[in-house]
């Protein structure tokens, strides 16, 4: 396993060295992406990637936790199997299907929500939208489309089943003795969950979320279909214009020159390193947290 990862890393580093040596340190400060004219950098793209992944995780983790708790603790035995296979089925839906669904259906439905948020919470910088004027009835709603927010929502739909199934496994492993003990001592089902299940499963929850985050960072085709790429740090998540490393690679690899390909490899390398860092952080958190009963 480790050897394969090492090989991937070395391959990316070798292919990227060409571009990195030309760009130098400006690779980490430049926002534009025009490798053939020598102006290219990773900073805007990495920020965009993280924003999309964060939106996805913020939506997916509560949803997945609720799903997993319901399936393991509340659902009647009869429908449990069905629910589990439903969640697993959702994990098997190809990402292009999610992308098309997001582009053709979800986008139209989410725009009013994004509009409402920006009108009422627009004073918070990340929810501000340039070019949206609530007093102008003819203002285009397109400023709310193809945004980080919508891409994040679609990615959330894709990572939810993965996080759910990990959490479900963990919650299922909570020791039956402690659970029944809590109930025998007169705890309600909810207080049993908060006092036994959740502390026991904390490491698993974090691990599952981190795994979801890893997938969200690397999600390609759904993001590629939805976003309208911009090459600058764009922190306004509801506004048209977003970017991520993997969608950039999907967008540009076909038409890249040899040098452009090297620049894309450099972008891929930084995504690879970032995902590694996230996973190490996850295992560190998991190792430090209590229980240790699962990981």
């Amino acid at each position: 396993m480790l050897a394969i990862m090492l090989l991937v890393g070395i391959f990316l580093a070798i292919r990227a060295s060409d571009a990195l040596s030309v760009a130098g340190w400006s690779f980490f400060t430049e926002q534009a992406w025009e490798p053939d004219t020598g102006r290219f950098g990773i900073v805007a793209i990495i920020v965009g990637t993280i924003l999309i992944a964060l939106v996805a995780i913020i939506v997916a983790v509560p949803l997945a936790s609720a799903c997993a708790l319901y399936i393991t603790q509340f659902a009647p035995q009869r429908i449990r199997g069905t629910l589990i296979s439903l969640v697993d089925l959702m994990a098997a839906i190809p990402s292009i299907v999610f992308g098309l669904w997001g582009f053709f259906w979800l986008q139209g439905e989410v725009v009013p929500v994004a509009k409402w948020i920006s009108q009422n919470l627009g004073f918070i910088p990340i929810f501000a939208v340039r070019g949206a004027d609530p007093n102008d009835p003819l203002a285009p709603t397109t400023v709310f489309t193809s945004s980080t927010f919508i891409a994040g929502l679609v990615v959330a739909m894709m990572v939810t089943p993965i996080i759910t199934s990990i959490m479900r496994e963990v919650f299922d492993q909570a020791p039956i003795g402690e659970r029944e003990g809590a109930l025998a001592l007169g705890a309600t089902r909810w207080s049993m969950i908060t006092s036994v299940i959740l502390p026991f499963g904390r490491a698993g929850m974090i691990g599952g979320s981190m795994l979801g985050l890893g997938r969200a960072l690397g999600e390609t085709i759904a993001v590629y279909i939805i976003i309208s790429p911009v090459f600058e740090i764009q922190p306004r998540i509801l506004e048209n214009g977003a970017i991520s490393v993997s969608s950039l690679i999907a967008l540009r690899y076909g038409e890249a020159t040899q040098f452009g390909m090297s620049a894309l490899m450099a972008a891929g390398l930084s995504l690879f390193l970032m995902t590694l860092a996230v996973n190490f952080a996850a295992s560190f958190i998991v190792a430090r947290s209590r229980s240790g009963a699962s990981s």
Binding site: F103, F104, Q107, G108, V111, R130, G131, L138, P140, T141, T142, V143, T145, S146, Y224, I225, S228, P229, V230, F231, E232, Q234, N240, G241, L251
Partner: peptide
């Protein structure tokens, strides 16, 4: 950036975007 242009991949992408009922003005 900031001029309100929208980029979409492929002819299918741009025509699909314009053809969304809500995207009036595109």
């Amino acid at each position: 950036s900031g001029t309100g242009f929208v980029g979409q991949p492929g002819s299918q992408g741009v025509s699909g975007y314009v053809a969304q009922r809500a995207n009036v003005g595109t």
